[in-house]
Amino acid sequence: MVIQTIRKKRPLPARQLAEMYDVTPRTIMRWAAQTRADWIDEQAAGREAIRAYHDDDGHSWTQTAKHFHLSLSTVKERA
């Protein structure tokens, strides 16, 4: 059986997908694992979005935290 890796976030929990495909949850995690490079790029894009919203658009830290549904300290740390 040849399995091609999906390389994106799972639409359902691993346990549910494992039951659907009759494999273990760990196998589902391997199939759908995001590459480190993709994860790093995703995090960088998120940090840039936070920085742009706060610095370029002139919003306060509190407004930025509410916009991104994060805590104030998390937003400041990521920016």
Score class of each variant (00 low, 15 high):
A52C: 13
K76C: 08
H69S: 10
A44S: 14
Q63C: 08
D57S: 10
Q4A: 12
K9N: 10
D38R: 03
R47G: 03
D22C: 15
D55E: 15
K76L: 09
I6S: 12
F68D: 01
E77F: 11
A79P: 02
T62D: 14
A45V: 04
D55F: 15
W61H: 04
H59P: 01
R15H: 13
I40K: 11
Q16M: 13
R30N: 12
G58M: 08
Q63W: 04
I6V: 15
V75F: 00
Q43W: 03
T35R: 02
T27G: 09
I50H: 00
S71C: 08
T74A: 03
D57L: 12
D41L: 02
T35G: 01
Q4F: 05
G46R: 13
T35L: 02
Q34D: 02
G46K: 13
A79H: 04
I40W: 03
A49H: 06
T62H: 11
Q4G: 12
G58W: 06
D56M: 09
A79G: 09
T5F: 08
A49E: 05
D41P: 01
H54K: 08
P25T: 02
T5I: 06
I6P: 06
L17F: 06
Q34T: 01
A14L: 07
V23L: 07
A65K: 01
A14S: 09
R36Q: 03
M20L: 15
Q43G: 03
K8Q: 08
D55A: 13
A14R: 01
V2Y: 09
F68Y: 03
G58Y: 07
R51C: 05
H67K: 10
T74Q: 02
I6G: 11
A32C: 13
Y53G: 04
A52S: 15
M20I: 15
A18M: 05
D55N: 14
T74R: 03
W61T: 04
S73M: 08
E19F: 05
A37Y: 04
K66D: 14
T64A: 07
G58F: 07
E48V: 04
A65E: 03
I50A: 00
E77A: 14
Y21D: 09
R15Q: 12
I6T: 13
A33H: 00
K9Q: 11
I40G: 06
V23M: 05
T64S: 07
A44Y: 08
R15K: 14
